[in-house]
Every structure is written in structure tokens, then in C-alpha cells.
């Protein structure tokens, strides 16, 4: 299937799902569904760098929060302009619609990704992982000390009373926006897999030194992956203030995002775009159920335990298990081939 065909087909499936969900007349479905969709985008974004290139990003929460706080800044701008600029200019400043906010959040988070990558990606992969871990702490410190976006007290973001699209309420609108973002993210991930870019990423993952020696521009490719991955995480975060209504640093930078962004692709399988989708749908739904029936701390514990369990027992995730179970014949052929290569 060509990329644009895939895009159209998944868009149609997504819209059909949306219409089907509307028939149930249940707002909670959209509230819970939004979180699952958000995790699909986060997991797919993480996998572009982590699964395809083999570089671990522990700072997903930081990129997510960058997107969310970009939105907060934009919603605070009109009031700020009213206070400090003459009326004619202030009248021009308004709150942009959500799709524009998503693009802005993507650009900011992408730039943060590019900067972090540029400083640390020339070294061993481990240093990048550690730097992303520390990045989350530092960006949180900056936000806590920045009064304009509410500092550590947090910021209210008032959700408009009506949605810009006719006939649906606001939570359905947010859900729809996130649904389109999911389709865009999955299409991008799938397109990368089948392009020169994707093969370049795979060479980095399998043997970076050999790739470098054969003329693959590894640093450039890694920077592309970090920027893309960061940008999608920021996009996932941009509508979040409207969803939650009140954003504070400790919720935007919550470790839960970082853990989920890693656990979902790891559990689903990192080599294909299906893995993060599968992992996010399963884990996201499981967490929603566990949060409602038990408690949110227990649902997080579940994710952590599943992550540890899967990396030890099933290193290639659910997709790997599937291939092991149904593709055994295929696999043994592959193994005999590699064995033949090794002996020759």
C-alpha cells in the first residue's frame, strides 16, 4: 500500500470509529479515549528514535510538557498584550485554534530535541539517555521558576464553551483532533520504515560503527530522528491543557509519560509501527480500567512491572511473540541462512 493510500484508509477507519463512538452518547468514552490516543502518539514518537535508531529517550515527559506549556503561553498572550501594548496591537493578538497550537508545540519540542541531540548524540548512546533524563528535571525547574505560565502554582486554561466544528461538543472535538494526529503519526512512522531514512536508522541501530564506515551520515540521521520524535511528543502535549483545564508542572512533567512512552513500544514491539499502536491501545486501556477500578498508583505499578517483565521475558514484545509463534518456519530458514554465512 502506498503512503497516501494508507493515510486515507486509516483516516476513514478513524472517522468511522469516531462516528460509531458518538452513537453511544457517552462523554466518558471520549475522555478515556483521548488519553489512549495521546499515548499512541507518544509511543509512536518514542519509537521513531528508540525503536528505529536504538537511542533511548527518558525525557518524553519533558517534550510532552514543552508542547503543553507552549499552549499555556499562547493562551496567556492576549491578556499580556492588553496590559502592555496599545489597543490596536493588542486587538490583533488572539488565541490560535488548536491545530495551530499543535504545530507550534511540535516546532518548540522539535527544537528542544534538536538541541539536546546536537550536544549529546556525538557521544555514546548512553550519554544521550542520561541527558534526556536530566533534561526533564531542568525544564521542570525552568517552568517552576517562570511566573508567566503560573510557576509551581500551575495555570488555568479555560476551555471554550463551543467547539469550532458544528454539532459536536468540546471533548469530542479534542478527541477528533487527537485522532487525526494519531493517523498522521502512524503514517509518518510507517513511511519512515519503508524509506531510505528508515534503512539508515536501522543501520544505526544494528551497528553504528559499520554504518559510519560505509558512508551513512549517522549524526545527521540521528538528529532528524530526535527532532521528529520530539516534535510528535510536543504535538501530543499541545492540546493537553484544554483537556485537563488546569496544568501544573508536576502533572505535565509526570514520570508516567516517560514510563508509558517507553513501556508501550517495548511491550508492543519496537521494529514496526504496529508495535507502539498495539502496546498503547492495550496498556492505555488497561490503565484506564485499573485507574477506575483500583487506583492510579496501582495502574502505574502495573505498567512498570509489565515493562520489566517484557524486557526480560519477551525482548521483542508482543510482535516478537507473534512472529515466534506463527513464523517459526520462516525464522528457522533465516537462521540457517545466517549460519551458512557465518561458516562460509
Amino acid at each position: 500500500m502506498r503512503t497516501w493510500q494508507f493515510f486515507l484508509v486509516s483516516l476513514v477507519i478513524a472517522l468511522a470509529g469516531f462516528m460509531g463512538a458518538r452513537l453511544l452518547q457517552n462523554d466518558y468514552l471520549f475522555f478515556a479515549g483521548y488519553v489512549v490516543l495521546q499515548f499512541i502518539v507518544l509511543a509512536t514518537a518514542w519509537n521513531i528514535l528508540g525503536g528505529y535508531c536504538g537511542y533511548v529517550n527518558f525525557g518524553s515527559a519533558a517534550f510532552f510538557a514543552m508542547g503543553a506549556y507552549t499552549t499555556v503561553v499562547m493562551t496567556k498572550l492576549p491578556a499580556f498584550a492588553n496590559r502592555h501594548f496599545p489597543e490596536e496591537i493588542a486587538a490583533l493578538v488572539g488565541i490560535p485554534p488548536i491545530p495551530v497550537l499543535i504545530l507550534l508545540g511540535g516546532v518548540i519540542a522539535g527544537l528542544v530535541g534538536l538541541g539536546t541531540g546536537y550536544l549529546t548524540l556525538r557521544l555514546r548512546g548512553v550519554f544521550f539517555a542520561i541527558a534526556t533524563l536530566a533534561l526533564a528535571v531542568v525544564l521542570q525547574t525552568l517552568i517552576v521558576n517562570w511566573d508567566f505560565v503560573g510557576g509551581s502554582r500551575g495555570a488555568y486554561v479555560i476551555r471554550p464553551a463551543t467547539a469550532p466544528l458544528f454539532g459536536i461538543n468540546y471533548i469530542e472535538y479534542l478527541f477528533l483532533v487527537m485522532l487525526v494526529l494519531v493517523v498522521v503519526a502512524l503514517t509518518t512512522a510507517r513511511a519512515i520504515e519503508r524509506s531510505r531514512l528508515g534503512y539508515g536508522f536501522a543501520t544505526i541501530r544494528d551497528d553504528e560503527l559499520a554504518a559510519e564506515a560505509s558512508g551513512v551520515p549517522t549524526l545527521k540521521l540521528k538528529l532528524v530522528a530526535t527532532t521528529l520524535s520530539g516534535a510528535f511528543m510536543g504535538m501530543a502535549g499541545a492540546p493537553f491543557p484544554y483537556y485537563i483545564g488546569f496544568l501544573e508542572p508536576s502533572s505535565a512533567f509526570g514520570l508516567a509519560y516517560a514510563v508509558n512512552a517507553i513501556a508501550m513500544p517495548m511491550i508492543g514491539g519496537t521494529t514496526s509501527w504496529v508495535g507502539p499502536l498495539l502496546g498503547a491501545v492495550l496498556l492505555g486501556t488497561l490503565q484506564q480500567l485499573a485507574t477506575v477500578t483500583i487506583s492510579s498508583a496501582v495502574s502505574l505499578l502495573l505498567v512498570g512491572l509489565l515493562l520489566v517483565f517484557f524486557v526480560i521475558i519477551a525482548p521483542n514484545g508482543l510482535l516478537g511473540l507473534w512472529h515466534d509463534y506463527f513464523g517459526r518456519k520462516h525464522k528457522t530458514e533465516d537462521e540457517s541462512k545466517t549460519a551458512a554465512v557465518k561458516t562460509s
Binding site: 539517555a129 517507553i262 517495548m266 496501582v298 505499578l301 505498567v303 512491572l305
Partner: peptide
Amino acid sequence: GQEALRGLAFFFGLLFVTEVVLIL
């Protein structure tokens, strides 16, 4: 030979599980 990606994820999982258990 999988310490690069999965080993890191393993320790991250340990960090997270310990923290959540202590919170619980």
C-alpha cells in the same frame, strides 16, 4: 548483548517500580 536498549529500559522500570511501591 542487549544491554544498550533493553538493559536501560530494565533499570528504568526498576526505578519506577521502586518509586511507585514506596508511594503505595
